[in-house]
Nucleic acid binder design. Structure first.
Length: 83
DNA sequence: TAGTTGACCGGAA
DNA sequence: ATTCCGGCCAACT
């Protein structure tokens, strides 16, 4: 099980209408200091099964989105009722 | 193997 | 509140 595999699994396990920060995900995978690596993996991730739109920054802002842009990401979160 | 990059975070100015 | 800087980790070339 590689780092990114674990990241995918954790993000996949995020319930609908909820969101986690990159730091939280990093902690989940057992690498509290690898928050940056998490972001990179998600940026490299084009896997539709992984709801990477539920992962945001600790500031409450959103990092990015490879599937439609930040706007789309915000719309998805709003549609899921995360806001 | 070594160097560069990135969807980050926290503290300081 | 905003901007700047350093640190940390994995992937990619």
């Amino acid at each position: 099980m590689t780092f990114k595999e674990q990241v995918y699994d954790v993000v996949r396990g995020i319930p609908e209408g909820t969101f986690m920060t990159y730091k939280e995900v990093a902690i989940k995978v057992g690498r509290p200091r690898a928050m940056r690596a998490v972001g990179m993996v998600l940026s490299q991730n084009y896997h539709p099964d992984v709801p990477c739109h539920r992962v945001i920054r600790s500031d409450g802002k959103m990092g990015g989105y490879n599937r439609g842009g930040v706007t789309k990401k915000l719309e998805i979160l709003t549609r899921e009722g995360a806001l």
